[in-house]
Computed example of a mutant assay.
Amino acid sequence: MNALDWIAREKSWPQFFRFYRKVSRTVGSETHSALLTDPDLAAEIGPVKRQKHPDPVGFTAEMHALRDLGDIMLAQIVKDPRTAALPRPLTGAEMHALRKRQAGMNRLVSQFSPQHVGLTPQLDA
């Protein structure tokens, strides 16, 4: 891809922005590296919110295997097989189960206390 294609209007600008977003999220790319080390951007964005689960895009089999090894080491160090596993991307089945639990909780609150439906806590993974 050539940057001049967009300037010459041979390619659409929405396609450029999709390409830029993809490149800026690719770990190890020059664009990603530049964004991570830009102090002005960091000041503008503010504190980074930590995710409980990583983004599935770019989560490779090697990363999954490393998390498995980390889980094994953690279980050996704390001597508890129920130790929390290192975070992995959420699967569709996990998201479906979470939505189902949320719907059940909302239904229960609406049956016993309809005036408090808006106060029902939202589950997150």
Rank of each mutant, 00 (worst) to 15 (best):
K49Q: 14
K79R: 15
L98P: 00
P121G: 02
L69S: 11
L4I: 10
I77Y: 07
L66N: 03
L36P: 00
F17P: 02
S29K: 07
T91Q: 06
Q122E: 11
R67F: 10
A65E: 06
D5F: 06
L74F: 01
A65T: 04
I45V: 15
D124Y: 01
L119G: 04
G104W: 00
T26C: 05
V117H: 08
Y20M: 12
F59Y: 15
V23I: 13
M95Q: 14
T120C: 14
S24K: 10
R99P: 01
A103M: 03
S12H: 05
H116P: 00
E94A: 07
W6V: 12
V27H: 15
E30C: 13
P56E: 07
T37Q: 14
V78G: 02
R50Y: 10
I72E: 13
P81L: 12
P89V: 03
P56D: 08
L41I: 12
Y20F: 13
Q115R: 09
L41Q: 12
V109W: 01
Q76R: 14
G70M: 07
P114H: 03
H116Y: 12
A43K: 15
M63G: 01
Q122A: 12
R50C: 06
D80L: 08
L90N: 03
V48H: 09
E44Y: 14
Y20A: 14
R21H: 09
K52A: 14
A65V: 02
S110A: 10
A43F: 12
D5W: 06
V23M: 14
F17R: 08
W13M: 12
Q115L: 06
L66K: 09
G92P: 04
W6T: 06
V109M: 08
R88A: 08
E10P: 00
A8P: 03
K11I: 07
T37W: 09
K11E: 11
L108R: 10
P39G: 11
K11N: 08
D38V: 08
N106G: 02
S24Y: 02
R99M: 13
L123C: 06
E30I: 15
F19S: 12
L69I: 07
L35Q: 09
G28W: 08
Q76H: 13
L69G: 11
L36G: 13
F16S: 00
P14W: 04
V109L: 05
N2C: 01
R50F: 11
R82Y: 09
A3T: 05
L108V: 01
T31I: 14
A85G: 05
R107Y: 08
P14Y: 05
T120S: 10
L4C: 04
R107N: 06
S110D: 04
G70R: 05
P114T: 05
D71W: 08
